[in-house]
Amino acid sequence: MVENPEFKVIGFFCNWCSYAGADLAGNMRLNYPADVRILRIPCTGRMDPLFALKALLEGADGVMVSG
């Protein structure tokens, strides 16, 4: 396995606002670092603390929850 040059930050983004916002960033071609991996959740209400713990246990460098 190759050493990954980026960090891996896991983003849990609300489908209705932040995920759509990230889509908008794409539509506007705004460049940002490739270190974030965005996962779509239906609402930040769905965010279980377990998800963040799981991400950190699996080796994530950071967790970002937005909604």
Binding site: E6, A25, R29, L30, A34, R37, I38
Partner: peptide, 17 residues
Amino acid sequence: REHVSWVTEDRDAATRK
């Protein structure tokens, strides 16, 4: 597209993501 190719400069990083 919106979360990778349109927002990432570097081709390798985009592919990994």
